[in-house]
Simulated assay, not measured.
Amino acid sequence: MKKQLSLLTFILMYTTSFAQVGINTSNPHTSSALDVQSDTKGLIVPRLTSTAVTSLSSSASEGLIVFDKDQKKFLGWDGTKWQNLGFEGGGSGSSLLTGTIFTQSFETGDSVNYTTAGFAPSSFNFTSGSTVTGDAPSSSSLFSDGTRGFGYSNNNSSGTNSYIEFNTVDASTYTNNITFSFDIAAFSIGSTSNGVENNDVVTIEVSTDGGANYNTKLTLTGGNSSTATNTRWAFSGSGIGTNSYSSSGITVASSSTATGSAITLTGTQAITKLSVTGIPNSSQLKVRIGTRNNAATELWVVDNVKLQAL
């Protein structure tokens, strides 16, 4: 035992004295703490998702290096933010990143990066499968990606939104052309005569101070005017509603000129993609989706949420 302890003490003293480690070499370079030598193999650093990199920001130590496997980039923590060590994709002389900051498809295996809040958080529920006879539109998927969406249905005449609030992210290392987008559809459930109208809305709201203050940049309403009510549409539509963060908030609605009630929108008349572009690369970026409807048979469904630097 004494011999073993003596040997261990000697090894520790030797390692401490030289404070160097060599792999595949017995003579590490004097300028290095670690010298790895090979003519046929490389060094693999930890490979993290973009979400995991963002989560690491609060505890990262200056000089930490990781590989972002979503961005396909080596990143280094400079003490306050992540730097792109490859300097690609951000413009001349820039180290700002492009790519996916986070996604949410509401699948069973997705990391939960959101909470629900506002008027009736319990009215949010996962949706799967398809609508049936007696719904409108019938035989339509209740998701746009994977196998699940996130639906909201509530009899709310107060004019107050409920929210899907996504976690605050540090987007300071990304370009200023940050875009938040998602897919949206509207259904009448258990009735073929209901749907959404002008006072039923979905909003995109952006905060650059961690949620202390929000700016509503885009509002989608059901119907197309006060003369069109109880509209509904599936994810198979191709209409788009978008706005720039630098612009004032706008309201979008279907381009359909139909009037009356119980109208099923299709093609470009069915707005199924909402987005806000040019969001600032704030270190305290927070986005949320607001929803409101005034009948329990009305159902908004959100899916395929993305925050990207393009």
Rank of each mutant, 00 (worst) to 15 (best):
Q4N: 09
L7Y: 12
T15D: 06
Q20Y: 02
N27C: 01
L34G: 04
D35Q: 06
R47G: 11
L56W: 10
S61N: 05
V66E: 04
D68Q: 05
D68G: 08
K72V: 04
K73F: 02
K73G: 00
N84K: 06
S94P: 03
T98M: 10
T103S: 14
G109W: 07
S123H: 15
S130C: 07
G134F: 09
S141C: 01
R148L: 12
F150T: 14
N154T: 03
G159Y: 08
Y163R: 09
S172R: 10
Y174N: 06
T179V: 12
I184C: 04
F187C: 03
S188E: 03
G190I: 06
S191N: 07
E197W: 12
N199R: 10
I204V: 11
I204E: 02
S207D: 04
A212R: 05
S225L: 09
S226E: 15
T231A: 06
G237S: 03
G241A: 11
A253T: 13
S256H: 01
S261E: 05
G267R: 03
A270L: 01
L274F: 02
S282V: 06
L285E: 06
N293G: 02
A295F: 07
L299K: 15
W300E: 01
V302N: 06
D303C: 10
A309M: 07
L310H: 07
L310W: 07
L310N: 11
